[in-house]
């Protein structure tokens, strides 16, 4: 049991620092560690848990806590959560402090300006990838297209749009 916990801690802490571009980017490595190398999970369980993570609200990284839960129960859940959150959060905290301290420094002003369009480009990319995954024919296009217009030009609460999307998907069955 404690061997499993140790393995969860090591794998999740590594994933934390490798997770450039979000938690989803590290799933292949986590799968390699948990499924292929250490046989803590079988592949079909792994895939099912990833799917559970996708239908749960909140940041994608919570699925890693779920993997810990599956392997070692509540202690595994806690260890996976802390091991995945702590390293990257400490780094973000330190980076934030440095950035705040030298906020007016010309180099950092330029760095922040240079990162902004990258963030915007990534948002467009995330939206496009999600639209591709949700693709169920022309009704998807109608839902995504209307939501783009509503979000771009109004301040209506997005829940209305997401609720309508769910309703349309349910009624039309695509």
């Amino acid at each position: 049991m404690s061997e499993a916990l140790k393995q969860i801690a090591v794998t999740c802490a590594e994933a934390s620092l490798l997770a450039i571009g979000g938690a989803t980017a590290t799933l292949p490595e986590i799968q390699r560690q948990f499924v292929d190398l250490h046989h803590l999970l079988d592949f079909s369980t792994f895939v099912r848990l990833i799917a559970v993570g996708q239908v749960t609200p909140g940041p994608n990284c919570i699925v890693i806590s779920l993997l810990g839960w599956q392997i070692a129960g509540f202690p595994g859940f806690i260890v996976a959560t802390i091991a995945f959150l702590l390293p990257s959060s400490l780094l973000a905290f330190a980076a934030g402090r440095v950035l705040a301290r030298y906020a007016q420094h010309a180099g950092l002003v330029i760095l922040r300006k240079a990162l902004a369009p990258i963030a915007v480009g990534l948002l467009f990319a995330t939206g496009a990838i999600l639209a591709g995954e949700a693709w169920h024919g022309s009704m998807s296009l109608v839902i995504t297209g209307s939501m783009i217009l509503v979000t771009s030009f109004t301040k209506i609460n997005p829940l209305w749009g997401i609720g309508s999307g769910a309703l349309l998907g349910w009624i039309t069955g695509f």
Partner: peptide
């Protein structure tokens, strides 16, 4: 299947939300 269809519809709307948000920031 009904639940899966509803989730796909919600995901399609969320994709629109993300692209619309990016558009707003870009503006």
């Amino acid at each position: 299947p009904a639940l899966n269809n509803a989730l796909s519809g919600a995901a399609a709307a969320t994709a629109g939300l993300i692209i619309g948000t990016a558009t707003k920031i870009l503006r």
